[in-house]
Amino acid sequence: MVVPFPDFIKPEGVKKILQVFCCLACLCPQFVYAIKVPGLYEAETIVNSQSNEGRPAAIRACLGMVLVKLTGTRDVSAESALEPILDQAERFVQQYRYQEIQAEIPALYGPDPAPRWRLAVKFDEENLNNSLRDSGIPVWDKERPSILVWLALERSTRRLFAEAGREPELLAIVQEVAQRRGVSILFPLYDLDDRVKIQPGDVWLGFHEQIMAASARYRADAVLTASVSAPVPGIWEGRWRSYGKDGLKYEWTTETDLLELALEEGFDGFVDALAYEFVHSGSYTQLGDIEITVGAVNSVDQYARLLNYLDFLSSVSRIHVKEVRAGEVTLALAAHGGEQAVVQTINLGRVLEPVESPDGHYYLLNP
Rank of each mutant, 00 (worst) to 15 (best):
S215N: 02
E53V: 14
I185N: 02
Y284G: 12
P38W: 09
E44T: 03
F207V: 15
I319D: 05
V355E: 12
V121P: 03
L307Y: 08
L148S: 01
A107F: 09
L313P: 07
F207D: 14
Q210R: 05
A34W: 04
E353C: 05
A275I: 14
K245Q: 11
G288A: 08
E79I: 13
S131G: 02
L274T: 08
V342Q: 01
L331V: 08
L70I: 04
Q99I: 15
E143N: 02
D246M: 14
P38S: 01
W240R: 01
D221P: 02
D7I: 15
V93S: 08
G136M: 06
R219Y: 04
L148Q: 02
Y309R: 07
V66R: 00
V196D: 08
N366Q: 07
P231A: 04
G165C: 08
Q19F: 09
R241Q: 10
P138T: 09
D301H: 03
L224C: 07
G337V: 14
V14M: 13
L82A: 06
M212F: 06
E42I: 05
L82E: 00
L148P: 00
L40Y: 01
F312C: 11
D141G: 01
S283P: 06
Y250R: 06
V321C: 10
A222F: 10
V203E: 11
L63Y: 07
A273K: 04
E264Q: 11
I105Y: 12
D141P: 05
Q30W: 08
Q94G: 12
E237L: 14
I173W: 13
L352F: 02
A34C: 03
L258Y: 04
P111S: 10
T293V: 15
D87R: 15
A78W: 04
Y303F: 15
S315H: 01
A164K: 02
K142Q: 11
L189C: 04
T71S: 08
N298T: 09
E264F: 05
V342K: 00
E42P: 00
R91H: 09
V183C: 02
E265T: 04
T225W: 09
L40H: 01
L70S: 01
G244C: 11
